[in-house]
């Protein structure tokens, strides 16, 4: 039960806390640690994503080296908590037991950065509300990020599915342009031997057929989209990760997808996500994958 978790908290992020509040002084909650910030002498405020919402909880003394809780509250951990209700501030974490630690995201710079990007999109797209579908998506994505051989493909898949949950599902299957006041709606079936490029228009929420792309070139934010990138976007959006896991992005398509999705997401967030800058600054470093 999570209800009432942040009652009275100055940072309460959600309105559901007083719906049928359980009066118990202690309650149990399971979630994923999204974010942490230092508080006071040795405490941290933990942002937890649960299937019912996002909560902030206070973990006392976790910065001390002998804290029993510290290791169970690392970033991206899936953890079960026993929480003590507090009257006037954040509820206190009294016990913590991590069920999944995700060490692979802690010690790998590229995967760690992508995991932070996963969190950034959740924080930006969702004010504090969350449901089981979002929880499952984030949990699955973090697990895949830790294990998959190509973390970038995991991220591209995650973006498609997060946009659906956030209500910004891109239309990759039919042309979203208007021609002479009527929606074009031409079905998009990209083939590798297509010679004309498709387009993408974030403000219209999807892809453009080659004819509409030519007609709209030079106006608005329409950008070019190769047939290969479009078919990848369709596959990523329609399928679960297992179905796309075996396929590999050609390097050029990977770069194009990165660019297209960054524009699409920035448009709908009305700001650029910042986390992936950490990878960009690393271009010149030998041995790094130059993905973003």
């Amino acid at each position: 039960m999570i209800r009432g978790a942040t009652r009275g908290s100055p940072y309460a992020a959600e309105p559901w806390y007083n719906l049928g509040v359980s009066k118990a002084r202690l309650y149990r909650v399971e979630g994923i640690v999204l974010r942490r910030r230092d508080h006071g002498e040795a405490d941290r405020v933990i942002t937890l994503l649960t299937p019912e919402g996002r909560v902030e909880l206070l973990a006392r003394g976790v910065r001390k080296i002998r804290s029993r809780k510290a290791g169970h509250l690392e970033l991206f951990c899936r953890t079960t908590l026993l929480v003590r209700r507090a009257k006037s501030s954040w509820d206190n974490i009294s016990q913590a037991e991590a069920t999944t630690v995700r060490a692979g995201l802690q010690e790998d710079f590229t995967r760690g950065t992508y995991a932070r990007y996963v969190v950034e999109l959740v924080l930006r797209f969702f004010a504090g509300d969350a449901d089981a579908a979002l929880f499952t998506l984030v949990d699955t994505t973090l697990e895949l990020l830790e294990e998959a051989d190509d973390p970038q493909r995991v991220i591209r898949w995650y973006e498609q599915h997060l946009l659906i949950l956030a209500g910004f599902r891109p239309e990759w299957g039919a042309c979203v342009a208007e021609r002479e006041g009527k929606p074009c709606g031409a079905p998009l079936r990209p083939r590798p031997d297509d010679r004309r490029p498709y387009g993408v228009a974030p403000e219209r929420g999807g892809a453009l057929c080659p004819d509409c792309f030519v007609a709209r070139q030079g106006e608005g934010t329409a950008g070019q989209l190769s047939p290969s990138a479009l078919s990848w976007l369709q596959a990523l959006q329609r399928q679960d990760y297992e179905s796309v896991a075996g396929l590999t992005f050609p390097a050029q398509t990977a770069a194009e997808l990165t660019h297209v999705m960054a524009r699409y997401i920035s448009y709908h967030l009305e700001r650029r996500p910042v986390v992936l800058r950490a990878l960009r600054g690393n271009r010149q470093i030998r041995g790094m994958r130059n993905e973003e």
């Binding site: 942490r36 991206f76 010690e107 790998d108 950490a278």
Partner: peptide, 13 residues
């Protein structure tokens, strides 16, 4: 910590 490990991972590369 997560933040310290992430910083170390960056410094290593």
């Amino acid at each position: 910590t997560s933040e310290g490990d992430y910083t170390a991972a960056y410094l290593i590369t």
